[in-house]
Each structure stands twice: as structure tokens, then as C-alpha cells.
Amino acid sequence: MSSNTETIILPAPSPKQPYVRISALEGGHLTLPEKLFITDADPNKRATVPSLCFLIQQPASPKPTNLIFDLGLKRDFTGYRPAQQHHIDQRQPTIVSPDVRESLQKGGLSASEIDTVILSHVHWDHVGTPSDFSNAEFVVGSGTLDLLAHGGGTLYPAELFNPDELPKGRTKELPPVRTSSSSSSAPKASPNQTQHTWTPLSAFPAVVDFYGDGSLYVVDAPGHLFGHVNLLARTGPGKWVYLGGDCCHDPRILRGERGIAMYDDGSGGLRSVHVDTEEAAGTVKRIARLLKQGSVVEEGGGQMEIEVVLAHDREWREKNLDRFWPGTL
């Protein structure tokens, strides 16, 4: 696969290429102080934003599959640990209904019909209520289970995570992407790994062809939190959707209108909302190229459309209510 620095080249469809259907799901809302997320922010401005989740249906034989990407907020905050609840107090107001389970039900689908849940990462506003999905296999990025059990260094202590968050016996990690990390506090990978293999895809250093048929790719998206992943989905001939999770928290960063905010880390230094700001900026730079007209092509040519959606994009939600389940992107 070409890795031309000017053009992102996506793989051409196979002769009998399957496509996925994507529907947005409500995952609750939280309120973010803009000064912690974007540069040149009004220091007093707070924005209530969604925590978007997505239903991805793969209708190809032999068995159609239902996959969910991210689970949003828990509807019952007692499911969070005390330190998590303290953090949530700083993100009020929050909205927890409808959550993902309710959103599915409104479109005629039960949580028990979900085959797979992929979490972009395990911050409190993305883990939702895993117990709703009694028949699903959970898939997380490398190092996530160690992060849940032990935390990830001074700024990400164990108290901010719940070691029992995900169902034991039904949770697997993607394999490590690199043998080393730029962060010395990066957690170790779990032995309970999937059999997937990371490979380069044009400008993206590491992706997993999740179904093995070119319809859905898991993209390593480092920087925000250990194990952070995105999805790249093929939704039709020449049509793609990129689900960016928390690669950044405001679409203006992707458009180059704002930067990633830095603020006092409490120890005399600066930090951002990302575990590794430099890596996060690199991830943003790669994704931003998807927005530039003519910078993305499919092998063999032809018309191309690609849509990028971030987890907390309020404007996208307001403009696309008809694309929530049972509607489609």
C-alpha cells in the first residue's frame, strides 16, 4: 500500500466487496470547559456536547453482525468509582437518557442482539453500561486491561478507572502496535489478545482489517489515552466514514482553526487532555488530511467521499438527527 505523503490512498473494493451500514446512537451528554480543550478559548465558556456512539451493521453472509463503537455515559452514576464521580461533578450538566440501550430499542434492536462492542478508549464518558450487552464480545486497544487494573501514571491514577468495568471472559485486546512507547508509564499489554495483525494503510501506520474483507478497519490512534483506537468504515462504492473518537474534542482542531490546549498540570508543568500531546497532534494531523478535498483517493481512481465524525461534535449531532438509528450515515 502506498504511503505517499501528499495523498491518502484507500484500498479499492474487491469484486464482491461487502459494505457496512452505520447509524449514530445517543450516548448521553457532558459539559466541557473549552479552555481545557482548545486554544484561544473564552476562559468562561462551557459547552454541553454529546458522547456519540455508533451501530455498525455488516449484512454480508454467512451471518449479519451488529457492532457498536463506544457506549457513552452510564445511566446510573453509582456505577462509577468515587474519584470518577468527583471528576464527573466538574462536567455538569450531564444528560444520561437516552443512553445506547434506549437508543437501540427506539430503532427496534435489543442490546442482546449486539455481537461486538469496540471501545475507542476507557474514559468514563465512553464505557457506558457494559452489562447491557450480555452476548457481545468486547474489543479494546492494547494495554487497556492493564490501565483499568493499575492506572497509567501520575495523571491517570487507578482510582479513575474501574478494574471490573468490562466483562471477564468476553473482553479481548488488540495486540500491541509497537514494542515500545514514548511514554514510560504506558501500561503493559494483556495476554488475552485477538488474533488480528496490524499493517500500514497509506498515511496510517497501523490498522487492523477487522472482518478480513476490507469493510471495517480499526485504526491505531495514539495520544489521547493508552489503547485509543478509531474506525474507518467502507459504507458504499467510493464512500467511507472515519469515526475519530477522542482524537480531539472539537472539530475546529481538525480544520486547523484551533490547537490543542495546554494547561497547568498541578506540578509546575503543562499538560493537555491527552496522555501524550505530541502523539495526539500527530494523530490529528493524519486525520485532518481526510478533510482536504482531493487528498484521499481509492486505488484505481473513481469518485471518493469520506466523512469524519468526532465523539463530541455537537454541531454534527444537531445537523444529523435523521442519521441516528434507525437512520443511517
Rank of each mutant, 00 (worst) to 15 (best):
H274L: 00
Q92R: 15
P175Q: 02
L232H: 09
E159K: 13
V219F: 01
Y217Q: 09
N4K: 06
S272F: 07
I8K: 03
V49Q: 06
P13D: 10
S134P: 00
T277F: 00
S134R: 14
P43R: 09
H121T: 12
L321H: 13
D265N: 12
P11I: 10
N162Q: 08
L148K: 06
Q193C: 13
Q57T: 15
V275Q: 14
P191Y: 00
S181K: 00
V296W: 06
P82T: 04
F37I: 12
K188H: 08
D164G: 07
A83H: 06
T5E: 15
R323L: 05
C247F: 03
D213Y: 04
R317G: 08
P205Y: 06
E305C: 06
F69K: 00
P191E: 01
R286C: 00
R317M: 15
R91P: 07
H228L: 08
V20T: 07
Q57P: 07
G294R: 04
T129C: 15
S202Q: 00
Q85D: 00
Y80K: 05
L329K: 07
G223C: 04
F210H: 02
H150F: 12
I95F: 11
V284L: 01
I95L: 14
R81Q: 13
T328H: 14
L321I: 12
L310F: 10
L36C: 11
P176F: 08
G294E: 08
D42V: 07
T31L: 08
L148I: 01
